[in-house]
Design a protein around this nucleic acid. Sequence first.
DNA 1: CTTCGTTCGTCAAGGTAGTTTACCAGATTG
DNA 2: CAATCTGGTAAACTACCTTGACGAACGAAG
Lengths: 151, 151
Amino acid sequence: MSNSKKEKEDNFAPALAAAGRALIATMMAKLASCGFSDVTPAFSSLMPLLDATGARPTALAQRAGITKQAISQLVRELEVRGYVEQVPDSTDTRAKIVRLTKRGVALHAASAEVRLELQSVAIAKLGKSRVSRLRRDLLELAAALEEMRTR
Amino acid sequence: MSNSKKEKEDNFAPALAAAGRALIATMMAKLASCGFSDVTPAFSSLMPLLDATGARPTALAQRAGITKQAISQLVRELEVRGYVEQVPDSTDTRAKIVRLTKRGVALHAASAEVRLELQSVAIAKLGKSRVSRLRRDLLELAAALEEMRTR
DNA sequence: CTTCGTTCGTCAAGGTAGTTTACCAGATTG
DNA sequence: CAATCTGGTAAACTACCTTGACGAACGAAG
């Protein structure tokens, strides 16, 4: 029967994985070509959470969905590369504030630009309505999977 | 303006990441509940490529899109867990053939079943046509991103 | 003011998943 | 038969995340 074949061909999982890999690789390549060759994939998930005002590591960890130890490491990496600086929080001696440096702001802007560029490429290829439907369907799918997992 | 806000809301990247994470987590959870609690995420990308007939590590590496060294490690892991066995290739003394064991076949079947289950959940949530369109759009998107990256 | 539980961040160690580099052994071809 | 290509392995390293244990500081209760 063509049943087993059809099941496989219709499965969205490999497509999802392929798109994910392509997204990260392209993001990295584009940033590298903008002069930010020392960023790693993890940075791009942290960058959208940062700004020049600053935030606490623990808050970042919660928003990024990882442990504060992981954030600590990541922030250190970003610090030695000169993208962020850590200043003491004047309202709490224990706490730090992680803030983008000038270079960090530049990376932030470049990241945003790359995201827009990727979005434009997607729209050029699929059209605006299909892209926004894609996004909506992905979110619904993620929710359904999560609900299935935790149940 | 609402422009900057709209750009962010429309961006497909976070949705893609969320769906990817949810997919892997749900896959793992389902397999664990089927009695396969010792599988890791990496296995699920390798399982669809394996069968009881067997294949060479190098071929697996190409199909999985990773190096043969990585496959070598992965296969060793699968071997100590009793999912695959390596037998010498009778047509080439250098080569090995990686073959699913009985337990491996069971895991393979369970994986396929889980994939079908996830597919069903997706269809229940989004409908058949939206799921297949989602898959198609993801593949097109991946191709567009790849083309953009390598260009 | 002291004590106590909580929170902030760090250090240390380890696990997972891959990579690069270097290498050996068998196969293939000039 | 010698050169070279191919199959596979070993070791070291990178990246990213985890758990566990901890010291320091905050805040509330006594």
